[in-house]
Write a protein that binds this DNA or RNA. Structure first.
Lengths: 173, 173
DNA sequence: CCCTCACATGTTAGTGACTAACATTGGCGG
DNA sequence: CCGCCAATGTTAGTCACTAACATGTGAGGG
């Protein structure tokens, strides 16, 4: 599949024509299944779950803390869905600027979802956007790092460690 | 110039050919001056300054706090360089996913510079990357928000407010 | 059993960002 | 005045992605 081609020749050096040929379809058909070349590797089905999870945290918390706890709470269900190729995909994404950009573009939607929930909870929009973007950046950084970690390191572990850095001093997790 | 075209027709709808024609040059020549279309709007001359500023903060601080203070310290010199078109550029960047992606790609270099300084100070690489990405995300969010703020709101003000959210509880700035 | 409708796929042709190889100009020191 | 270097132009190509239209194939109803 496409993943193999990317790993062999690099993401940029692999053309959509090659992927399509390897899959026995036309380039046209490829674009009917995936809106962009990078969509083969980068997907983002968790937005609603995460937004819910953030909204479920106590409104009294400061925005960063609310988002942080929301992400940690969502983490269980998400990392359970880690399939076998997840790490390979992530490792690949980490190697290409274009792919990293695609990931960030994807998280923009997650960020927007979180911001909406925070704003309806009375949080000023700027503060909400800052809290969401900072926490998601930390999470994304952990995700990308995970790709080059040894097999036995879990994603949840890294994300937890990342988000702990944004916790109020003295209180871990 | 290109900025006017972008504002009139939108970034995506403005082709490099049009920009080149408006400037009285060939598309080819355009690409000799700017590596990409987005480079007209997105530039990043501050990396070394910021990295220095981060390194100048006490090593004893937690990584996030060190980066945070470093960014705040660098803020003075940077926002002094705000020229007249800065706000227009930022407002434009905020409107286009492709341009926001370009900004993020640009910050990756800044992040890398910061991480190097933190790592040589004894900070684990993951923690350094997380701290840098979170603080830079907060800063970038403030920057983008600035584009749609009223004239009298300064960039420094917004960035300060953004970074204050990542400060240890109870201590502002 | 055939017909038809719908949907997945193919075909062709184009646009726009970017690149490489090579030609051309223009000013400036010798 | 000559040659040299740098900036610019020319041509032709690659690759991601799109639009308009054609084809084929399978499922369901007559």
């Amino acid at each position: 599949m496409a993943l193999d081609l990317f790993e062999r020749h690099g993401y940029a050096a692999t053309t959509v024509d090659q992927i399509a040929a390897a899959a026995g379809i036309t380039p046209m058909t490829f674009f009917r299944h995936f809106p962009t070349k990078d969509a083969v590797l980068v997907t983002d089905p968790y937005d609603p779950l995460i937004a819910e999870s953030v909204a479920a945290q106590p409104e009294a918390l400061r925005p960063v803390e609310r988002v942080r706890r929301g992400l940690l709470a969502a983490l269980g269900e998400i990392s359970a869905a880690e399939d076998a190729t997840a790490r390979r995909r992530v490792a690949l994404v980490a190697t290409s600027p274009a792919l990293r950009a695609a990931v960030v573009a994807g998280t923009e939607e997650t960020q927007a979802a979180i911001v909406e929930r925070l704003v309806t909870g009375g949080c000023p929009r700027l503060d909400a956007a800052v809290a969401a973007s900072a926490c998601l950046a930390a999470t994304t950084t952990a995700l990308l790092a995970w790709g080059s970690e040894p097999e036995d390191v879990t994603l949840a572990e890294l994300v937890r460690r990342a988000l702990d850095q944004l916790a109020p001093v003295g209180s871990a997790s």
